[in-house]
């Protein structure tokens, strides 16, 4: 895992910026629940593509990994969407 982190430093830096931006935008959108849901969905989709692209670049990809990022993104989106309903 450490070597993967080292090799993908820029990708992880990008992810951290995305996460901070997500928190900021989500909090800023309150009390507009609909906007918060859009932000959560957009971020979930970005996270999915981030995972797939990062693994593709490091040539450590298979269908199981794609499915894993898809299910993780869906779960994260679902939690946020349901709480804002």
């Amino acid at each position: 895992m450490k070597s993967f982190l080292k090799k993908n430093q820029i990708a992880y830096l990008f992810l951290m910026i995305l996460l901070v931006a997500f928190i900021y935008l989500f909090m800023r959108a309150w009390p507009n629940g609909q906007m918060q849901r859009y932000i959560a969905i957009a971020f979930g989709v970005i996270y999915f593509f981030w995972g797939v692209i990062t693994h593709t670049k490091s040539k450590r990809i298979n269908s199981e990994i794609v499915f894993e990022y898809l299910s993780v993104s869906m779960l994260a989106i679902l939690v946020i969407v349901l709480i804002t309903l």
Binding site: M1, F4, Y12, L15, L19, M27, Y47, G51, E64
Partner: peptide, 22 residues
Amino acid sequence: LVGQNFAHVALFVTVAFLLVLF
């Protein structure tokens, strides 16, 4: 050959953080 736990942890910590602050 699995997804990156570190990235998943970062994602779910963010989700937990938002749940607390919501």
